[in-house]
Structure formats: C-alpha cells, structure tokens
Design a protein around this nucleic acid. Structure first.
Lengths: 132, 132, 132, 132
DNA sequence: GTGGTCTAGACCACC
DNA sequence: GTGGTCTAGACCACG
C-alpha cells in the first residue's frame, strides 16, 4: 500500500494518513491482521516528521482501526465502522447535502451534478485499480 | 431564519454561520434582497462576539452570497459567484469527493450513493416548493 | 521585500499590506513559491497587531495571490485568479475608471492620460527586467 | 445638472455627491457663480437624509469648490485644483499604477489594458454628452 | 442605528 | 516554530 500526501491541500498530514489507511481497510486492500509500516519507515518514506506518523497511528488506534503490539508493530484490527445502517446513511446524506448547496451557489444544475458525481466515481475506481 | 451553533463540533462558529446562511439561500428561505440580522443582533442571539459574526459575513461577501452597505446592513445578493466555469465545477467536485470518501468509510456502495443523492435532491425540491 | 505603512493616509493598514504584496508579485519581486514573512514577524516589523497582518494575508489568500499551509507559513501562489473573463475585465475597468475620474479632477485630458499610461507601462517593464 | 447615486457601490453617498459636483465643475458644466440645489431639495430628489447632503456640501466648501451664503444658497466658487502640473500628473500616475497591478493579477495584457481604457473613455464621453 | 478597523491577549491545531 | 479561532473592548465612518 502506497500513501501519498498532498502538502498543498491544507488538509493536515496526519489526517491524510488516517484517511488513506481507513480507506485502504474499507476497500479491502488492507486485510485484518496485516502489518502496517513502522512509524520510522513511513516517516522516512513520506519525508515527514516521525511525530506526525505517530499521531496518525495513535488516532487510528483510538478509533479501533489498528492495534499496536509493543515491540512487534502495528496491525490492522477489525473491519470498519460499527454504526447502524441508518446512521451510516445519514452521514453520507449530510455530505451530499453540502455538495448540493455548493452546486446551487456555483449555479450547477441537478443533471450536471449527477454527471460530475459519475466522473468522480470513475476517477476513484481508476485510482483503486491502479494501486491494487 | 433561526441559526444554531454547535460549540462541541469543533467546527469554527463563523463557518457554521456561513454554511447555514448559504443553506438558507440555496433553500430559497432567504430571498434576494432580504436583510440579514445585524452583526450586533446576531452576535447577541448566538451569544458570541461581534467579530466572529463579522468574519462570517465578510466571508459570505467574499463568496458573493451577500452584499453589505455601510450604515445600512447586510443583504442577500442576486448574481451568484463570478468564478470561471472550470473553477465552479471543481468546487462542486471537491464537495462530492468528500461525500464519496465518507461513503467508502461508511461502506456504502456506488449505486446506493447515487440513490441517496437522488433522495436528497428530491427533498430539496420539495422543501423549496413547500415554502414558496 | 520591505513593506511600509502610512498611518496618516486613512487607508486601512491591512489593505496597504495587501496592495504592496500584490504590487511585489506583479513586479516579479516576489516569485511563485516564495515564502512571505510569518504573521508574527511582519506584525513586529510593522509594529501592528498580529490580527491585522492575519487579515491581510487572509485577504490575499481569498484573492488567490497567496497560499497558506498550516504550521508551515504563507507562500506566493502560481495560478492567479479563477474569476470568469468578464469579471476579470470589469475589475480592471473599475480601476481604470478611478484613474479617469482622477484625471478629470486633475484637469488632465484623454490623450495625456493615455500618454501617462504608456509611460507607466514602460516603467513597469523596465523594473521587471532590471530585477530578473 | 442631474446627480445619480449608486447605493450598492459601497462608495459613501456623500462622497459620490462631492465627486459628481467636482466632476461637473471640472467639465465646465457647472460654471463659477452657479447656484447649487438647496440641501433640502437635493436630499428629496436623491431620497437620502438631509444630513448626508449637508456633509457633502460641507466637504465641498472645505475644499474650496463652493461657497455658502447664509440665507441665499450654495454657489460654485473658483475653478478647480491649484496643484502644480507635476503633482497633478503623479496623482493620475498612481491611479494608473493601481490599474496596471490589477490587470496583472487579472491576467490581462498591455494591449488589452489599453483597449479597455479606450472603451471606458468612450463610455465617459457618452455620459458627458448625454447630460449636457 | 449600521458596518469597518484595530488592539491585546488567550487558547488551539499542526509540524 | 507556524497559522486559526475567539473574546472583549475601543474608536471611526456612515446614515
């Protein structure tokens, strides 16, 4: 699994790591029990400070996505969110609402919005395939 | 129009105001030319500092949602954004990307995502009609 | 790059900063990617409050002149504005209108105005070349 | 002489009055000794507060453009600025510099800038003729 | 009454 | 170290 950071995005580096690893787990690219790169290793690879990686791993452990075993390493734990279906859907709905409001202000109509969604979904598909 | 802040969310107060007002405009609940509550008034209502409200209103003005007239007040603007087509689309795409990532985390698939978008779009239509 | 504020001018300090930095970028004195002085540093240099500098930098970011990376600093951005062609032209037209009105007040005619514009354009060219 | 206020411009009403009258004097449309409309009359015509007109007239008197004779009215005084040629030119040059910087940020080139200046000059000509 | 600018100082998030 | 958010309170410009 290869991580990539976008330093210009304004999104905190540690959050980008957290999200990409959660994404990998959700995608099935990182299976339960798989070992993550060591803090030192990942920090070197991404050319960032070890503290930043440590913070990301700490966050992941806090969320129950990974498990650290002292002296052994960091491993993928279970299998994703445990929220009920309804709660999961409403989280997604909230994100879509934001997109709809944004589209309104950008004077982009319903059909065009759907078209863009299709485009972005395809872009994500490609990234997924390209990396697996 | 009643605004509500969630101080526990970690989301900056001024951004919550911005989003709720943009939402109101998109909904048609705030019509072109309508006057927003004065900075002092809203600050008192929400029990936050004047400057925070001022920052929110400034942000809305930057985005072209609102127009302020010195000594008169702040009003909902007509035109909408002046961004180039490409920039407008990429703003919407960014919002959709966030929704796609959220969907992945929530283990919600492509087709279901589209279905939820349709639902939300319909919900917006209805609310808009219901109020006009 | 050295900034200077004129406190007697009545022109807001934060706007003077914005204008001088935009001027520096237009001149080529501030190149893409260059780091601006930190908020704290500039505030101290100019003997004004941090918030005032922060407001100036925020304004520059809104206008797409500058990019800020949390915990790193503020940097000159490449692209330029994302406004639509029409909006871009009308911004320039507004600036020219101000000059035309000024010329009228100063009893300076149409042809002379054009002559001065040519002079100033040449001056800009030279200064740009002289520094590169 | 007909004055027009643009309430949306953000430019203070009293300043718009000042500028339009100074403009009229510079154009020769308002000759020395001509009587201006009374405060009450102009306030009614422009649908603004009398205080605002009074402030404008006060400013004009302060600048030596008009003269108020108690119980008679307000009259045009002398004939415009008394600055030396060089000072007058450099005021105009400063305004043009601002336009040039603006043009750079709006990615509008030298030739296009001149074209826009011509357009705006024509627009001003028309307004002038249309009113005389 | 309205909004605009600025100060002084606090606390937080990020690297 | 960097920037981001917020408060409290002052003074000014405008109508």
């Amino acid at each position: 699994m290869i991580l990539e950071l976008n330093f210009k995005s304004g999104r905190p580096a540690y959050l980008q790591i957290v999200e990409q690893i959660k994404f990998g787990v959700a995608m099935g690219r990182l299976k339960t029990g798989a070992q993550l790169p060591s803090i030192r290793e990942l920090a070197e690879q991404l050319r960032i400070n070890r503290n930043t990686v440590a913070k990301a791993y700490g966050e992941l452990e806090h969320e129950g996505v990974v498990e650290t075993i002292q002296g052994k390493g960091v491993f993928v734990k279970s299998g994703g969110t445990q929220l009920a279906k309804g709660a999961r859907e409403s989280n997604v709905a909230a994100a879509l609402d934001a997109a709809i409001v944004q589209a309104h202000h950008m004077r982009i109509g319903k059909e065009e919005l759907k078209r863009i969604l299709d485009e972005r979904l395809e872009a994500f598909e490609e990234r997924k395939e390209g990396r697996s």
